[in-house]
Write a protein that binds this DNA or RNA. Structure first.
Lengths: 151, 151
DNA sequence: CAGCTTATTGCGAATTATTTGCAAATGGCA
DNA sequence: TGCCATTTGCAAATAATTCGCAATAAGCTG
């Protein structure tokens, strides 16, 4: 089932409406690779609907976030700008961000479960959530520098 | 050697001045526990010098950051607000943040080195920096909830 | 398929953390 | 003690995101 179908089902179930704007924003989320910003999604959607407003994009993203369809992320090299992770909040994974080309790679590692448990045991705490970001150079930029993409 | 002494040495070495404002900000950094915000440092410093301006606090923190004496941190539950880690950028450690009392615990774990190396090997990347934050409930808040402190 | 209700949109203004420009103040060497 | 470049205070600028509100349009209902 596609993202648009899932969201449609959800929105209808709670008396909401599936508008043209929402459909376009969902399409943009599926098609834009990486973790786009609201502006990037806005730019993409604008190609189809020149009248759409940036605040509609923000509102829709916030609403998708509440339902767990997207998760907000912030990276330190650009900490003011929110990015949207279309993988949603359910599927947990970690991130690597290349400081040259700005690409984001998602990965997972079972060691994080160990780190979490060790912390919980030592501090008698309960860990609900983990954010891990590795910053550095991706394979390509290690060899051939300066391929900077969008911020 | 105290932080103020270290910074004085550095600033004099590069033709800068150790002003009363800078001294107070450094004292605040040493005395405030956790990872204070610029506003918190400002509030503290203001008790000694009612004339100091918030932008002086920001400028000084930025300058300390450039020299590696403090490191900026952002936590997701309050992602817009910058916090300053007096441990500096040299000493690397990770963070736990309690979602109830907002306290920050610093910790280290050798498994992160393994995660880093595994990632570098698999993706042929070079990791320069790691940010890891665990979010959850600290020991006290697990038992006795609602002791919320500053944001 | 036209009407109706109210969820959603567009727009512009507000918000908030941080930064900047500039004239006035001051640290610290001569 | 005076000089002058570095720093400060102040007020205005920035920039991402949010909000209020009147206008628009989903999608039931008849």
């Amino acid at each position: 089932m596609t993202l648009i179908q899932q969201v449609t089902e959800r929105v209808r179930g709670e008396g909401g409406r599936m508008t043209g704007q929402r459909r376009l924003i969902l399409e943009a989320l599926e098609n834009l690779s990486g973790h786009p910003t609201a502006e990037e999604i806005y730019a993409r959607v604008r190609k189809e609907d020149a009248e759409i407003n940036l605040s509609t994009v923000y509102r829709t993203l916030r609403w998708l976030e509440e339902s767990g369809f997207v998760a907000p992320r912030w990276f330190e090299d650009d900490h003011r700008r929110e990015r949207f992770d279309a993988a949603g909040s359910s599927d947990d994974h970690f991130h690597f961000r290349c400081r040259t080309c700005n690409q984001i790679i998602e990965f997972d590692d079972p060691n994080l479960e160990i780190v979490k448990q060790a912390f919980e045991t030592q501090y008698l705490a309960e860990v609900e959530n983990i954010t891990l970001v590795l910053y550095g150079l991706c394979a390509r930029c290690k060899i051939q520098p300066n391929q900077a993409q969008g911020a």
